[in-house]
């Protein structure tokens, strides 16, 4: 299996605040990986770093940041821009605000084609029509001249997806693609993403905060907390026997698992921010299994077979 993305010890520093801290992530070609975490856990920033979209004060440090055999750290900006948008592309959370309201759907989709693929105007138009029908927009010819405000949220997200897959990327990063959408539309969009992933044989990184979406869609799950990867495992294992206390607590807090209960088990406290980052394990102030060592030493990210966990005392076969 070829490694498409290989990230090792990636840190992103915003003015002294580590939004991403020591993150390892590998994605194999043609795989679906889910990244789950609460807001502020660094899941989006990791992907922005991969895309080279970190804004000004951010400093990226990494031991290794490889995409498809190319070292992104040493690469020149010009070469990198050829990869971004062509081989790696991204879908953002808010489809209505990610599209430019001043331009038509056709213009916005063909912009990527024009830059990366070239071709004549007619060829590009044909390709746009093909893309729009691929993402399930009925009568695409009539939609070419539509502006984003004329489309519904679900339709806008389809246009975003069409734009992202325009140049047949080998990796698609979907950052909360369904958060702003209704459940029935969410189901449609997720189905579409997985279909396209299979058909085009591209890798898909799905970022979300919704455990249930992850459980139904992806093969491998990466759980992030306060800028660190705390656990990585297959979707099957992680939901039946989580190893990290955070994953365990997060799953227990889901209303779905407590239908008969009168109260939900909660995780006390909040995600640490810039000024209250604890020493040692970042989760220790909220952890119910905390020991002395957790308060002093940062646990190492240890691998075992296909899973990996960052905890001094990983849970073994702990029923969730």
């Amino acid at each position: 299996m070829t490694k498409l993305v290989e990230i090792k010890k990636l840190s992103v520093d915003f003015d002294g605040f580590k939004a991403v801290d020591d993150v390892d992530l590998t994605v194999d070609a043609g795989k679906v990986v889910g990244i789950v975490g609460e807001s502020g856990s660094g899941k989006s920033v990791t992907q922005l770093a991969l895309m080279g979209l970190i804004p000004y004060p951010g400093i990226i440090e990494a031991e290794r940041l490889m995409f498809n055999g190319n070292d992104l750290l040493k690469m020149q900006d010009k070469r990198r821009r050829q990869i971004t948008g062509k081989d790696v592309s991204m879908i953002f959370q808010e489809p209505m605000t990610s599209l430019n309201p001043c331009f038509t759907v056709e213009y916005q989709i063909s912009e990527a084609l024009k830059i990366h693929e070239g071709g004549t105007r007619q060829q590009r138009r044909d390709r746009v029509i093909e893309l729009l029908s691929q993402v399930g927009i009925p009568v695409p010819e009539d939609r070419l001249k539509s502006f984003p405000h004329q489309l519904s949220g679900g339709m806008c997200q389809r246009v975003m997806i069409a734009m992202a897959i325009a140049c047949n990327p080998s990796l698609l990063v979907a950052d909360e693609p369904t958060t702003a959408l209704d459940v029935t539309i969410q189901a449609q969009i997720l189905e579409l993403l997985v279909d396209l992933q299979k058909k085009n044989n591209m890798a898909l990184i799905l970022i979300t905060h919704d455990m249930a979406v992850i459980a139904e869609t992806v093969e491998d799950v990466v759980v992030m907390y306060a800028g660190q990867v705390v656990e990585k495992n297959s979707a099957q294992n992680i939901f039946t026997s989580p190893s990290h206390p955070y994953t365990h607590a997060l799953l227990n807090a889901l209303p779905e698992r407590n239908v008969q209960a009168r109260r939900l088990p909660t995780i006390p406290g909040i995600v640490p921010g810039k000024y209250n980052r604890p020493k040692g394990c970042l989760f220790h102030p909220r952890c119910s299994f905390v020991q002395e060592i957790c308060k002093k030493e940062i646990p190492a990210y240890t691998r075992k077979d296909k899973m990996a966990v960052r905890c001094h005392f990983p849970l073994v076969n702990y029923p969730s």
């Binding site: 609460e38 807001s39 905060h209 455990m211 607590a249 997060l250 807090a253 889901l254 209303p255 939900l264 088990p265 909660t266 995780i267 909040i270 995600v271």
Partner: peptide, 8 residues
Amino acid sequence: LDVSVQAQ
């Protein structure tokens, strides 16, 4: 709200 806060 996030899942853990949502439960609270």
